[in-house]
Design a binder for these strands. Structure first.
Length: 586
RNA sequence: GCGGUGGUAGCUCAGGCGGAUAGAGCAACGGUUUUCUAAACCGUCGGUCGCGGGUUCGAGUCCCGCCCACCGCGCCA
């Protein structure tokens, strides 16, 4: 019988069927099987106590009843005990550990196991990054990009069809001044060198000129009116600005391993907003107030008085309008089952109003709303506890932040591995530097603010990218020395049963990978996976110290190489899900 | 003022629907290398989970009140 991908889920199901076959009211029994503290075994069922409470049963008696009714195959794979007030503890037998490691020994097998989950066949759209064109990406754009990409990868691994959509801000009022300056002061050489730098310079020039001279302001406003009216010349300039901006963004995305499926910015929804006004008004959801079209929610303590403005008093759309139009498009044209907005926490009110409005709108018009969720994240703070800025109070440009990460990593690599050729040290520094920025962001619960600190981020020990990448590199090093390829069946042939405490502890950690991925995906919180990978790397390092791999005894050597190969596979797969690259040497 | 989020070891943080003796990392202190990368490993020290009440077999977690910090609250996104 093949091993089950996620042992925790399998035990969960086994307990539910045990409850049913024992004649218990299984319908409201959630066994809550989770990885346990090692002293108690591999997994524990937490759900027995609440279940007993609901039905006024004696917890330990209930636990024993459940254990007695467990399917036989569970008992061949695990030792099961009842402990404490009514916990059921499961410890996998060595044979079951070995079977799992055998059956899930390739990336394809892991992917197939994970993709059989509840997301299989669903379409999920992830809306993330979403910078404004004609401006540099800065540190405020970092978390959305990094967290959004990790979540997209997790969902895809879980079997969903994922649509990555970059909802760029490409239709703001800034284009009037920008086009005005573009026509008069464009520096072609500067544009070629760094287009976003040049656009920012132009915008500032246009803004300054408008402030100094009312005639210029008027000209700029007319440029905007012409653009919005569809003037061919201005549209061409606008298109050029956006194209060049996107190409510049892509340079950042390439460094972060991001590639979007769609880039549908605000301009895409220009011709789709009038339907929003019409439908929401017809549905009696929107009404005029102080010259604007707004939606109130009378049943809501706050939104009964705090308006959701969907058309400004000057008649223009705002982001509430386009966000509503976007939901309709994602429902009717893209057929999404779910949409995730990876946007900072300060916008929580906006999304609550948006979702509430969309829910009523769709109900009134007989449409089915996809699942919508605001995947929020906290602000990146400087060491002073305030939003991270340069010393002069400007936003820190993302390209400069990433360059600094690589430079700092290069210094580090040169200290530790000075013997490696310069080009290789640069390549390593790129992976370590960028990976450290990504990992520091992902390793913490996304909902809390986080303090950006180079020293912590690039530290060689603790829960950092460098620590994990080092474990990967050490495993590759062993295979180089052994003259074998990781996962090669020949190196693992004739492996004897796992035996030493360090071997068993490592194997026990490996089989919990599916649970970590499941937790990270279900809750859209990548830090669960980070924590798991850190603990796995720790178990590996302990094993690496305690048990020499390349020993003379062939069966021992084979089983340790197998453990190394599986650890490598899971570390590389897990880091890949987070969007990090890995190394063979560092 | 109204609302949201948070306050856990000296520092930075975990803590999945209320479960076992509240955990990591850093820092501090002590140890480990003729051996596959010591960017490592092992150990010690460290707690009024902001304060006060409540709910119950059981509360860092849920409820009420208070203190403090940050964020949001009509035409930016």
């Amino acid at each position: 019988m093949p091993a089950v991908f996620n042992p925790a889920r399998r035990l969960d199901e086994a307990l539910q069927s045990a409850a049913a076959s024992a004649g218990l009211p299984a319908a409201d029994f959630a066994p809550e099987v989770r990885p346990a503290d090692a002293q108690h075994g591999d997994f524990q069922a937490n759900g027995v106590l609440p279940f007993a409470k609901r039905h006024r049963l004696t917890p330990r008696v209930l636990a024993n009843q459940l254990v007695a009714a467990l399917p036989a195959d569970v008992l061949t794979d695990c030792t099961v005990t009842v402990a404490g007030p009514g916990f059921i503890n499961f410890t996998l037998r060595t044979g079951a550990l070995a079977a799992w490691l055998q059956d899930f020994g390739t990336r394809e097998a892991l992917a197939a196991g994970a993709a059989a989950g509840p997301l299989a066949g669903q379409i999920w759209l992830v809306d993330y990054s979403s910078p404004n064109t004609a401006k540099q990406m800065h540190v405020g754009h970092l978390r959305s990009a990094v967290i959004g990409e990790a979540i997209a990868r997790l969902l895809a691994f879980g079997g969903a069809r994922v649509i990555r959509d970059n909802h760029i801000g490409d239709w703001g009022t800034q284009f009037g001044k920008l086009i005005w300056a573009y026509r008069r002061h464009l520096d072609a050489a500067a544009l070629a060198r760094d287009p976003l730098e040049e656009f920012e310079r132009l915008y500032k020039a246009g803004n300054a000129a408008s402030e100094a001279d009312p005639a210029v302001l008027k000209e700029a406003q007319q440029e905007l009116v012409k653009l919005q009216a569809g003037d061919a010349d201005n549209l061409a300039v606008w298109r050029h600005i956006n194209e060049v901006s996107l190409a510049a963004f892509q340079e950042i995305y390439d460094r972060l391993g991001i590639r979007f499926d769609l880039t549908l910015g605000e301009s895409f929804y220009n011709d789709k907003v009038s339907a929003v006004y019409r439908e929401l008004t017809a549905a009696d959801l929107a009404a005029e107030s102080q010259g604007a079209l707004v939606v109130f929610h009378p049943e809501h303590p706050r939104f009964k008085t705090q308006p959701f403005i969907i058309r400004k008093s000057d008649g223009a759309a705002n982001y509430a309008t386009t966000d509503l139009a976007t939901i309709l498009h994602r429902t009717e044209a893209l057929h999404t089952d779910g949409v995730l907005y990876v946007v900072g926490k300060p916008q929580a009110d906006h999304f609550e109003q948006l979702f509430l409005t969309a829910k009523k709108w769709f109900e009134k018009t007989g449409r089915t709303l996809p699942r919508l969720a605001h995947v929020d994240f906290g602000t990146v703070l400087g060491e002073n506890g305030k939003a991270l800025k340069t010393r002069t109070g400007d936003n820190i440009k993302l390209k400069e932040l990433l360059a600094e990460a690589e430079a700092r990593a290069f210094t580090l690599v040169s200290e530790k591995s000075g013997a490696l050729p310069d080009a290789e040290r640069r390549a390593i520094a790129s992976v370590v530097g960028i990976g450290s920025v990504q990992y520091a962001d992902l390793a913490q619960n996304r909902s809390s603010d986080y303090v950006f600190a180079w020293d912590k981020m690039l530290a060689l020990d603790g829960n950092t990218a460098a620590y994990l990448l080092y474990a990967v590199a050490r495993i590759h090093s062993i295979f180089r020395k052994a003259g074998a390829t990781p996962g090669d069946a020949a190196a693992e042939a004739g492996a004897s049963a796992l035996e030493t405490p360090a071997e068993l502890a490592l194997a026990r950690k490996l089989v919990k990978f599916p649970d970590a991925v499941q937790a990270a995906t279900a809750q859209l919180r990548p830090h669960f996976l980070c924590l798991y990978l850190f603990e796995l790397a720790g178990e590996y390092s302990s094993f690496n110290t305690a048990d020499k791999v390349l020993v003379d005894d062939p069966p021992v050597r084979a089983r340790r190489l197998l453990l190394c190969a599986r650890t490598l596979l899971i570390l590389e797969t897990g880091l890949g899900l987070l969007g990090l690259r890995t190394l063979q040497r560092m």
